[in-house]
């Protein structure tokens, strides 16, 4: 059964920060799975490797929490490497011949860059999962601070660490075929993407605002009833609007939606009585490195400090 992708999803490629595989890439993928080997090798399942970079492991849990579906995943895919689940591929990275590499975490050390390049070179497809891999994650807050100073203040022996001054998303270093946003991603989102890979079709790429899901779920808007500063109107859905469902404001963990108007939203927050620094922190949190959030956050932070801060623990913008 060939599940065709709704045209609207293809249209979303024009967004600068969306990186879904191109059609050409999907076709190439079909070639690798349908080559002559199938007749010889009984095991034609796609070979999958899950890798971790700087992260909390929460997105890998989206796999491990899949319950009975995990058995199905294991039946449909040949999972070669997944350290958190206890599966190790002991061959050197570059010799591994992987169909789909799934990456959690951001790039924080020089070693990371090297390892990532090797993973890319030995994988047909590369998918990032979660805010860290996709936009740097919470550790990317240090990109706006004096990282060396933080190290000195936090660790007893900072000289024993070798860490880059920035935490950066995977796409800043290698080509990424598909990005799954979220902190953490959820199981349905992940399984949906895997299912579509098997069909050689593009997974759904939901860039609509959380508000759409929120209203479909029948939630009551916390901005309208409680003046809570909700990021739902600028954040992409797929989370199921769980935060508003529990009466709290969205904190933007799925990253920016398409066509965001962060300016209007933050002015509304200001009207609710939030201070510039509080507004800045709304945007500079989980997806601080995504362009719309970074720009909006900086704008409010700069209002507070007309000169860049260099001498204290605060963010230097």
């Amino acid at each position: 059964m060939a599940q065709r992708i709704p045209a609207q999803i293809l249209s979303q490629h024009s967004d600068a920060d969306v990186t879904v595989t191109s059609n050409a890439a999907t076709d190439a993928y079909a070639d690798t799975t349908n080559n002559g080997k199938a007749n010889v090798d009984t095991n034609t399942r796609l070979k999958v490797a899950v890798h971790k970079f700087a992260s909390c492991d929460g997105c890998q849990l989206a796999f491990l929490n899949a319950g009975a579906d995990l058995l199905t995943v294991n039946r449909l895919f040949d999972i070669r490497h997944f350290a958190e689940a206890g599966l190790l591929d002991n061959r050197p990275l570059i010799e591994r011949d992987i169909d789909v590499a799934i990456i959690e975490g951001s790039v924080c050390t020089a070693e990371d860059i090297q390892r990532l390049q090797q993973i890319r070179d030995s994988s047909q497809r590369l998918i990032t999962i979660g805010a860290c891999a996709t936009s740097g994650g919470i550790q990317a807050l240090r990109n706006m601070a004096d990282a060396q100073q933080w190290l000195a203040e936090i660790y007893a022996r900072p000289e024993s660490l070798s860490s880059l001054d920035t935490a950066t998303p995977i796409s800043q270093h290698v080509k990424v075929d598909l990005e799954l946003w979220g902190c953490p991603v959820n199981t349905e989102q992940l399984l949906h993407a895997l299912r579509n890979l098997l069909w050689h079709s593009l997974p759904e790429n939901n860039k609509d605002k959380v508000c759409m899901e929120c209203k479909r779920a029948g939630n009551i808007c916390v901005m309208v009833t409680e003046n809570k500063p909700c990021l739902g109107p600028v954040t992409q859905g797929s989370c199921g609007a769980i935060c508003p469902h529990h009466g709290r404001d969205c904190y933007g963990c799925y990253g920016p939606a398409e066509n965001t108007n962060t300016d209007s939203l933050s002015q509304r927050f200001s009207g609710f009585g939030l201070l510039p620094e509080e507004i800045a922190r709304k945007f500079l949190l989980i997806n601080s490195q995504s362009k719309p959030f970074l720009e909006e956050g900086k704008k409010w932070h700069n209002q507070l400090t007309s000169q860049p801060q260099t001498s204290d623990k605060g963010l230097r913008l």
């Binding site: 399984l191 299912r195 759904e204 605002k209 759409m212 108007n261």
Partner: peptide, 27 residues
Amino acid sequence: CLSCGNCTSVCPTCFCSSQRDIPELDG
């Protein structure tokens, strides 16, 4: 405008919809 769709969602007369497929994992 935030282009958020809250107005059309609460509007009792709006009727627009989109469609999607939700496959089982095993196809």
